[in-house]
Design a protein around this nucleic acid. Sequence first.
DNA 1: TTGTACGCGTTATCAA
DNA 2: TTGATAACGCGTACAA
Lengths: 343, 343
Amino acid sequence: MTVTIKEVAKLANVAPSTVSRVIANNPRISEATKRKVKKVMEELGYHPNLNARSLSSKATQTIGLVMPSSGDVVFQNPFFPTVLQGISEGVHEKKYALQMTTGSMDHEIFEAVIQMVQGKRVDGMILLNSKVEDKVIEYLREINFPFVVIGKPAKYPEEITHVDNDNVRAMKEATEYLIHLGHRQIAFVGGRPELMVTVDRLSGYKQALEDANLPIKKEYIKHEEFLREGGQEAVSELMALKQRPTALLVVDDFMALGVLNKLDELGIKVPEDISVVSFNNILLSEMSKPPLTSMDINILKLGTEASRSLIEKIENSTEPTKRIIISHQFVERSSCSRIDTVV
Amino acid sequence: MTVTIKEVAKLANVAPSTVSRVIANNPRISEATKRKVKKVMEELGYHPNLNARSLSSKATQTIGLVMPSSGDVVFQNPFFPTVLQGISEGVHEKKYALQMTTGSMDHEIFEAVIQMVQGKRVDGMILLNSKVEDKVIEYLREINFPFVVIGKPAKYPEEITHVDNDNVRAMKEATEYLIHLGHRQIAFVGGRPELMVTVDRLSGYKQALEDANLPIKKEYIKHEEFLREGGQEAVSELMALKQRPTALLVVDDFMALGVLNKLDELGIKVPEDISVVSFNNILLSEMSKPPLTSMDINILKLGTEASRSLIEKIENSTEPTKRIIISHQFVERSSCSRIDTVV
DNA sequence: TTGTACGCGTTATCAA
DNA sequence: TTGATAACGCGTACAA
């Protein structure tokens, strides 16, 4: 039925191993037979059986991707397709295939990872959702299986290769930008405090305030889901304060959209009455009213670099643990304005 | 190193084939040995090598997904992550794995598909981007490989199992909604005319107008990219017309966002000055100003049904060609208003 | 430079 | 109900 290496060998009057060598581009083979074999392969429409190859060579040229649980908010956020695109490009560029897995429950995901890894379906893994108690990471570490994390791992960040932004600095810069515009009442609207992104960005926010000798007010720090509703709730609460903030730092564009929406509802004008700085700079941010000033964290590159570093690690097991920092870039649009400092 | 079926067999004092039968849950095996073998598997932490299994059984329990070319607009559109989520769920539910492929050029994608299929890495394929000249479809048809298309295939729609909406009816209903509100000058802002979605929706639009004895005006029909910029351009052109439309049908929420943006720029108020109906009903549509009245096409289900029908087809080769229609639902928000008919 | 022979880990066939 | 044994298709050490 399907054409195998043997049939090619027979027709080309060589041994199967010779055909195998031609496929592998083994240098110790004459140009003549190489051509001959290749011609037969063409004629027969030969394609190697990847399962057989993997079984024998113990490599799959496939990398696995653990996605956020389906139903998770992350799925809704445009962040996801963009990293995926980046990952996909990086993988493709090295001729690797990509296999992904989801699950509604954590243990489902864990099972799926075990299947992939123990079933020898992948040579390495990319993890998107590092949690504080991450069984997947624990497991992969234990068996010493190649993997990289996108974002900062909650545990052992020094011992795990990961691709991340310098979120502390990025948020510090964003905060300083607002301070330079004269803002003193600056609120932070972040995601769940268990997430490392949140921790780092919050820390950057605090650093900037401290450096400027501004007080850190608890009531100005909000933690909501990474979704637009989250943004809306945060705004309601902040605007109910006696002393309203004059500027908002929102850790996600999608959330910022909710923020803008709510502000509009409340009749508060951006940037006249309040300034908003957002994060991620997804396409949406230039679409909003007004277009959002946003910190571009180069999501695409986050993905491609994850693939690349993982594949390096797979192909060279002595590759050291790395922390890859993707640069960020502040993109000014029209959601912020200067304010007269009230002393 | 890795624990194989043989070692399990040895420790359990049975033959490898017996172990294999236990794994496969073969009924012709005594409960006693079944338990014994399972216990040993536990102890040794045995996990089957899926490559070996696939090689032998000629099945992979994996389905392949062809994504739009990376860099394609579709990637930016929230439609994509949602179908993906649906597909993923459907696949997961049947214990299948998911492998995906992209490429920047069409021939790259084609190569990747060949690899997957001929390399015996997948049992079936889901195609997202049916084009008019689709080499992938031609190929899969020719070798009689199981696949389903999401959306209507440009060629042989009767002979290809596909999951789609009734786009003609959906758009007809949307158009009729506007007509009932009193609108007579209704414009259509669609995507590329080569896409079947566009064709079908345009046809629904025309049918509704004809049924209402309204003229079909060429200048009211715009074809732009499925992106927000597309929406913006269309608006510019439509609003430059002597007789401006009083209502807009936009075939995509993302595009509709661009439309709203442009209208705002031009000082045209929605829904007071112009009504807008959008399609897809992604999360964004309730976030816009004003919230968009949109036709929900149940993207998630489009994905899950694609997976399910594909797996059915894989597991039962006599499964007939099917056309699966996912229902749509009109979601009224606040982007439309009644208009006094000017006779 | 090429061929022989075996192993990769499973499933499947045929006996027992 | 269970056990040998032969595929599955490919890579590779070793020999030639």
